[in-house]
């Protein structure tokens, strides 16, 4: 199988260049379906084989961190999902679009692999419908995959991000739970997204609160928004000081917060932000020439992304008809 090596804290890890199991995220598909569409668009452009398995259920990571799904249940759900991945003929590399999926299913896998008796317990339950977790599933985050394909993607690019300044925000559940596995090596100053931006000619911005959480807090964004607003304001203020054209994120939860809260925060704090928010896959698809509405799905954004897209579309590097 084709793969490439990407640096992590100590040494490097292998990122497969093909054969993906598209591990969908409920929040992403609910709030930003355009990210799914963009990822499909990218996979097709790259000629990568991937599986979209209707049988895959939610990873339940949101519920787990929102304190409503016991650990035992969480682990067993994952054992079932892993068995689906293992049963794939070739597309065995799970690609999570959401950092919480990534963190959660990786934590479950570690648990199942570390405690044989827990694995047995989970397997006993899923054996009732003929499934078994063997311990072979491999888990990656989609940003790592895009980073791994960067050279080919650059060649495929229709537009360049030349002259555009992009602030990035990495998902805490990607960088902080499995901190030794963060692609490009540093969890305290992650730059996978910046590398993606720079690959297309843009500039990744350094702002003071770069590693601060978006304030999601799971239960907080549902019912205790004072927390979310307060953290978010700090984050956005610091970001705004560097005058970004775009905020690039990695996570549906962060996208929800950083995009949706800008307007209420303007009302509350009297400060205008108006920073368009896109996900890594959306930006990549956009640069590859995808349709902003039909593929990138910008209609699901609260802050208007169109001004940014217009800036990008001025930087045409290749004459390619837009693909719908």
């Amino acid at each position: 199988m084709k793969q490439t090596r990407v640096p992590i804290l100590h040494g490097d890890k292998e990122i497969p260049l093909d054969n993906y199991y598209f591990f969908r995220s409920c929040i992403m598909s609910t709030l930003f379906p355009g990210v799914d569409c963009s990822l499909r668009f990218i996979f097709e452009k790259l000629g990568c084989s991937y599986t979209e398995d209707p049988k895959q259920t939610c990873c339940s990571g949101f519920n787990y961190h929102a304190d409503i799904i016991p650990w035992e249940t969480n682990v067993t759900i994952q054992a079932r999902n892993f068995s689906l991945i293992e049963n794939e003929e070739k597309n065995k590399n799970a690609i999570c679009v959401c950092p919480t999926s990534y963190g959660n299913i990786k934590e479950c896998q570690e648990h199942l692999d570390h405690y044989p008796e827990e694995k047995e317990k989970a397997n006993k339950i899923i054996a009732k419908f003929g499934k078994e977790y063997k311990g072979e599933a491999k888990i990656y985050h989609a940003t790592e995959v895009i980073y791994a394909h960067r050279e080919k993607l650059k060649k495929l690019a229709t537009y360049s991000l030349d002259g555009l300044k992009v602030a990035t925000h990495h998902g805490c559940h990607y960088t902080k739970i499995f901190y030794s596995d963060v692609a490009t090596g540093d969890w305290e100053y992650p730059i996978v997204l910046d590398k993606i931006v720079e690959n297309f000619g843009g500039e990744g911005l350094d702002y003071n609160e770069k590693t601060l959480c978006c304030g999601m807090g799971f239960r907080h964004t549902l019912i205790n928004r004072d927390y979310t607003r307060t953290v978010m304001l700090r984050k956005l203020k610091s970001m705004k000081a560097t005058k970004p054209d775009l905020l690039l994120v990695q996570c549906p939860g962060c996208s929800l917060n950083l995009d949706y809260y800008q307007k209420p925060l303007t009302k509350l704090a009297g400060e205008e932000f108006n920073i368009p928010v896109l996900n890594y896959a959306q930006l990549t698809a956009l640069v590859l020439g995808a349709d902003p509405v039909k593929v990138v799905g910008i209609k699901t954004h609260n802050v208007d992304v169109m001004p940014f897209i217009e800036k990008v579309q001025k930087n045409k590097v290749k004459e390619v008809a837009q693909v719908g």
Binding site: E188, Y189, D206, T211
Partner: peptide, 10 residues
């Protein structure tokens, strides 16, 4: 500088 949260080098 390998401990990014303390900002040395940044």
């Amino acid at each position: 500088s390998i401990k990014g949260n303390y900002g040395y080098g940044r």
